[in-house]
Simulated assay, not measured.
Amino acid sequence: MPETSRRVVAWVTMSMDGYTSGVEGPAHDAWLYEHVKHEASAAHFEGIWRGVSTVLLGRTNYEGFYSVWPGITRDPATDPRNRDLGEFLDTVEKVVFSRTLETADWENSRVARDLEAEVKKLREAPGKDILVANSASIIQALLRADLIDDLRFVVVPALLGGGLRLFEAGIPASNWSLAQTTVLPDGAIGVHYTRA
Results as ranks from 00 to 15, higher is better:
22 G>I: 02
4 T>A: 14
57 L>H: 07
135 S>E: 07
113 R>D: 04
58 G>R: 02
125 A>M: 09
25 G>H: 04
55 V>F: 07
125 A>H: 04
141 A>H: 09
90 D>M: 12
48 I>Y: 01
144 R>K: 14
6 R>K: 02
153 F>C: 01
21 S>N: 00
50 R>T: 10
145 A>E: 08
100 T>M: 10
144 R>H: 11
84 D>P: 14
191 V>S: 05
100 T>Y: 11
12 V>R: 12
106 W>N: 06
106 W>Y: 06
93 E>D: 08
126 P>T: 00
183 V>H: 05
80 P>R: 15
162 G>Q: 05
62 Y>A: 12
120 K>H: 05
185 P>W: 13
4 T>N: 11
123 R>H: 06
136 A>W: 02
75 D>K: 07
9 V>S: 07
153 F>R: 04
77 A>L: 11
120 K>L: 07
97 F>K: 04
82 N>K: 15
52 V>L: 03
89 L>S: 09
17 D>F: 08
160 L>K: 01
32 L>W: 00
91 T>Q: 13
39 E>R: 14
70 P>I: 09
46 E>F: 08
132 V>K: 03
31 W>K: 00
11 W>G: 12
77 A>G: 09
159 L>C: 02
125 A>R: 05
140 Q>E: 12
85 L>E: 05
49 W>P: 01
18 G>C: 05
72 I>R: 06
190 G>R: 00
84 D>F: 09
152 R>Y: 10
19 Y>I: 00
177 S>I: 08
178 L>M: 04
132 V>E: 03
32 L>Y: 01
43 A>V: 14
28 H>A: 08
61 N>K: 14
75 D>Y: 07
69 W>H: 10
135 S>C: 08
150 D>P: 01
158 A>M: 05
2 P>Q: 11
73 T>N: 13
104 A>I: 14
56 L>K: 04
